[in-house]
């Protein structure tokens, strides 16, 4: 009996060990792919046309969902704030509440999650179907490095576009908040926007002119963008098992990148707070 238990424990440990090794290995894969794709940005041939095309695709795909999610999030934030702040008689501070939540946290996070769902899944599905229809092999055969041709433009495009979309998301959110503040709480638009700026200023500045809020708000989407593109390209290129495999790659991309975004969000925040002081 005891012998069997020990045996099973060992077996379990072995399996755990194997699973852990696999995790480390796949983490390593992400870094290798990310490193290669960035490295290719600095040498010839550079597929500039593909980069422009990807930036356009990501922008077009995501603009409306980012505008919508931002706007409604801002509205609901203002609504909640009006209830909470009323008890303190401080409803004129709604603008500060909305901008504090949007710029530092919700803007980057929502844009990141939305783009992971929309763009990440799209990239994984496209590269995955190129893999299973042998188009990736065809690229290789015709003398093109698929990482250079497919991954580099997608990573660069996402690195550029996600911060851009986040700014749009932030702005849509604050605008949505302003609509609610004006329509429900009767706060003058000018006052609302002044409190928004007061909040940004209260967060402090780095190099005298750059608000810390903006540093938080732009570093995050930049990192998230890298995560989304590299995860999507990695799962896409590794697709196996026909059309079914494409579905698996897509799902894994959205789940993995969403979890990684939520986790790194915490660590980036902590790092930036330590570094910037606020």
């Amino acid at each position: 009996m005891r012998g069997r238990l020990t045996h099973e424990t060992i077996h379990l440990l072995e399996r755990f060990n194997k699973a852990a090794k696999r995790q480390v290995h796949s983490l390593q894969e992400f870094f290798v792919l990310g490193g290669k794709s960035i490295g290719f940005a600095f040498s010839r041939p550079f597929y500039g046309g593909d980069l422009v095309q990807q930036m356009e695709a990501i922008g077009v795909q995501s603009l409306s969902i980012v505008l919508l999610t931002g706007f409604f999030t801002g509205m609901v934030l203002a609504l909640q704030a009006s209830v909470q702040l009323k008890t303190f008689g401080a409803t004129m501070l709604i603008g500060r509440f909305v901008s504090a939540s949007m710029i530092r946290e919700l803007g980057p996070l929502l844009a990141g999650l939305m783009v992971a769902g929309r763009v990440g899944s799209g990239i994984a599905a496209q590269l995955g179907s190129m893999r299973v229809t042998e188009q990736i092999d065809a690229l290789n055969t015709l003398g093109t490095d698929p990482i250079r041709k497919l991954v580099t433009p997608r990573v660069l495009a996402t690195l550029i576009m996600l911060p851009t979309l986040t700014v749009i998301n932030d702005f849509a959110g604050i605008l949505g908040g302003s609509v609610i503040a004006w329509a429900y709480v009767k706060i003058p638009v000018a006052l609302y926007w002044r409190t928004v700026w007061e909040q940004i200023a209260a967060g402090g500045f780095i190099f005298r002119y750059i608000p810390n809020d903006f540093v938080h708000g732009l570093v995050k989407p930049f990192v998230f963008g890298g995560i989304i593109a590299v995860v999507a390209c990695n799962f896409g290129l590794k697709t196996s098992g026909g059309t079914e495999g494409v579905g698996v790659a897509t799902t894994r991309t959205v789940v993995t990148s969403s979890i990684l975004i939520l986790m790194t969000d915490y660590f980036i925040t902590q790092l930036l707070l330590a570094f910037l002081g606020s």
Partner: peptide
């Protein structure tokens, strides 16, 4: 190389 499914882009 001519691929099985042609593998056209």
């Amino acid at each position: 190389m001519v691929f099985q499914g042609a593998a056209l882009f």
